[in-house]
């Protein structure tokens, strides 16, 4: 399925990157303000879905640097890994660890295992959604007549 509307296609070129950027913003601010990995993942997925509707599934596939199934796997791995530092410190699995890294001036960078975990959730959600949507879209192109079975 691919739309040939000029308006949608033009809009998608601008909106998709913005949406992706916004999803990263949501992801990073999630710990203090509304947002987080799950929401950000959905936001990023809908960015890709918008692009898919405008330019078709093949063009979207070419956009991926990592295919959705690998993204999903990476997300799961990150989720697991984020639990490990605590174990090395003799604490229960997944116990949060925080590191404040001083930057130039007064700023500090708050890094933590929950952040890694959240990125894992983010990737897992994108991977899952895109895997399903891409599969559905592709089966769409396989059977243009849309006959069911």
């Amino acid at each position: 399925m691919k739309s040939n509307t000029l308006i949608l296609q033009t809009a998608a070129i601008y909106i998709t990157p913005l949406q992706l950027l916004f999803s990263v913003f949501l992801l990073l601010r999630g710990h203090d303000e509304p947002g987080g990995g799950f929401i950000a993942g959905l936001m990023a997925s809908s960015a890709f879905v918008l692009y898919m509707f405008s330019y078709g599934v093949t063009a979207t596939r070419n956009l991926f640097k990592i295919v959705p199934v690998d993204m999903l796997a990476l997300g799961l791995i990150l989720g697991m890994i984020s639990g490990l530092p605590a174990m090395f410190l003799g604490q229960p699995f997944l116990q949060a660890q925080w590191w404040d890294i001083p930057l130039l001036g007064d700023a500090t960078l708050k890094l933590s295992t929950p952040l890694i975990f959240d990125i894992g959730v983010y990737l897992a959600v994108i991977g899952t959604t895109l895997m399903i949507v891409v599969a559905l879209m592709e089966s769409e192109t396989d059977h243009p007549s849309g006959n069911g079975d």
Partner: peptide, 22 residues
């Protein structure tokens, strides 16, 4: 260390549940 309680629950307090969910 987070003011968004929902997110803190998801990724910290009940991270194991979330891990299961993903």
């Amino acid at each position: 260390y987070g003011r968004n309680i929902v997110n803190v629950i998801l990724v910290d307090f009940r991270a194991l549940d979330t891990l299961g969910e993903i």
